[in-house]
Design a binder for these strands. Sequence first.
RNA 1: GGCGCUAUCGUCUAAUGGUUAGGACAAGUGGUUUUCAUCCACUAAAUCGGGGUUCGAUUCCCCGUAGCGCUACCA
Length: 509
Amino acid sequence: MVRTRFAPSPTGFVHIGSLRTALFSFLFARHHGGQHVLRVEDTDQNRLVEGALENLVHVMNQMGIEFDEGFYVTDDGSIKERGGHGPYLQSKRLEIYQKYAKQLMDEGKAYYCFCSEERLEELRKEQTALKKPPMYDRHCKKLSADEIKSKIEEFSAKGGSASGGKSAGKRPVIRFAIPNEGQTVIHDLIYGDITYENKVLDDQVIIKSDGFPTYHLAVVVDDHLMEITHVIRGEEWLPSTPKHILIYQALGWQPTQFAHLPLILNPDKSKLSKRQGDVAVEDFLKKGYLKEALINFVAFLGWNPKTEQEIFSLNDLIAQFDLAKINKSGAVFDLNKLDWINGQYIKLKTDAALAELLKPYWQEYGTKTEKFSGAFLTAIAALEKERLKKLSEIGERTAYFFKAPDYAPELLVWKKSDKEKTKSVLSDLLELFKNLPEADYAKEKLELAIKKFIVDKNYDNGSVLWPFRVAITGLEKSPGPFEAAAVLALGLGKTEILQRIETAIKKLS
RNA sequence: GGCGCUAUCGUCUAAUGGUUAGGACAAGUGGUUUUCAUCCACUAAAUCGGGGUUCGAUUCCCCGUAGCGCUACCA
């Protein structure tokens, strides 16, 4: 049984890279009929963020990434935990890590380290100055039993006193003793076999002085205990993987399989970061990117089905997903392509569904959607469907439907026409509309009537259609005049059209 | 500095030991059109460099170069 997990630390927002990692681990699990676990890695007490867990679970839920174990959103919107391998919050598993750390100590595979932060810093400085790799010098590994005993007493005497800075905590740290010889080989499902010399590996701290484990211990213990079969994570973890394998071996366990994902990059090719634009999934959602588009786009960063199909639903992805089709080089996060995919998904929506999605964005813009009929909103959605790249654009683009537009009089004059002609065209048009029966305000009838009007009056299209459209929309760029007018009549009645034409004539006077 | 990874159009990528190196986004041009968008057609745009192996290498190997990642009591 394949079991994968997504194991983020709760930072307060969901990074786009995390989304892809979660997506791939979900796709892999589902593709193989396996299970997907959500475990939260909150072992850094200095970086706790209020509400981060809730936010994380809600975003995952919203994106349609499911977890069989871990945390989930209940019907009433609260967060609950489930599954037989819990707890799924690392801060609630402290005794477990302690137990295995002790086991390693007892077997001589780990040791207490009493070195102060200052000493460590000094050491690093010296090593760097000598152009040597900064590594722990294993000073405390050589301590005798008596020395250890007295050091421990000294440490507890200090208690939690603030005197010695952060490093003078209550307890020493525990370091994992890396073997000085030999090699460790990673069999990565994406990168292939990678060999590391053990001697270049540092003696990692596995239990911090506050009693919390570091990532390296916690990840190994939890993945083992939670019966994870495949660890799918970002490429930034590749260099610490040999340490993890060594810990597995020290504990007498079989390592999981590993699949490291290529990084997602900023336009300058550095690791995608907050500094260079939005990286929070929440922000993209807020801007009006559809979850389907986000999923589709992110799936194509580093993976592709090797066909020419570009649009994939989550189910398509599950069916097609294959680790062997993931490539090894990092991928730049290209907003242009995201916009395009988003536009594609917007076009795929029905008019009514799109209108529904648009409501919050109209509200945000200040439009009281409850005052207008569903048919009206749907008709507007239909008009904008092929123009919209992001839902958040809707407010500004369609403001004229809800409130008479304001615009400069010159905008009414078509480039091949002039002010006087425009004025008389609009006056003629006003007459036409005054006599137009209500039933003829439907788009097709309206179009027929106006086209006939143009022929009868011997006008040309531009000198009629341009000012008419501007009178209705007040915009230089907008949907066509017939559909805009028809939708406007549907929502606000035919008199609104007469009024807007009258306003236009006045503007030219 | 050490260790590791990577390298095809601007971007995401496909392909093969032999192809006119393909597609998509973006860009540009033209068509449709009152404007915008859509749509259609077209154009420009790439195998990092040097050595091998081979009849032949963009593909396999080595070296170099570049970029990135890691190098914490952060994950």
